[in-house]
Amino acid sequence: MSKRLRHYIDLILVLTDKEMKLRYKSSILGYLWSIGHPLALALVFFVAFKVVMKIQMDNYALFLICGLFPWQWFQNSVTVSPTLFLNNASIIKKVNFPRNIIPFVSVLQDMIHFILSILVIAGFMLAYRKAPSVAWIYGIPVLLVIQFLTAYGASLFIASINLFFRDLERLTTIFMTLLFYFTPVIYPVSMVPDKYKFYVNLNPLGPLMISWRGLFLEGKLETQTVSIAMLYAVLFCALGSFVYKKLSVRFGEIL
């Protein structure tokens, strides 16, 4: 292995370790937190829509779980992004290293939590007498890569911009709440009125979330939907990297 690559891996390991320690104090707690939050949300929506409003859907709890876990990963990655560079000011100002590795590590960590939480999804499937499908073997890695790129691009973009305009934190939270309800996570696309269906594809998270649920519930990946999701991932990544490249030479003096 080349020395350079070895060093990148070590950087990622050390920074992941640091984030785990700082954010959760221990890796077990971090994992429990990453499952607990979407489960709590699932419970809330189940009570609101199934118990109270009596939505006409079978297995609604399972449906919620399959959508909320991947969504929560994206949401976590984006919500922490404004503070990523700010919280690492003391190392960015004094040590020269590739700074984009900080968002990279942050998203990677959320991804690892998500991967571990797939076990919970599989558990719920079994409880509903459904078997995980063989398609998961290739489907999960494909969607992981797409979502990683999307979240990394968004995180890099927001983290960089926020050094210059320090008020993105609240804007990001509001934006993510809007995006959540405009994305088919707690409702299926089939319930979206026909005249609005087109707009689901304009939402960068729409095709991705639909693909995750299709894969988990039916073991299906639609090429078209996945391609659109991939397109958004590449766009996000390109935009994030472009902005980072333009702004990163100024990080040291603005912090």
């Binding site: 950087l11 640091k18 190392i91």
Partner: peptide
């Protein structure tokens, strides 16, 4: 953390 950021391997 510091030594790895500065360029050493673990």
């Amino acid at each position: 953390l510091n030594a790895v950021l500065l360029g050493l391997n673990i």
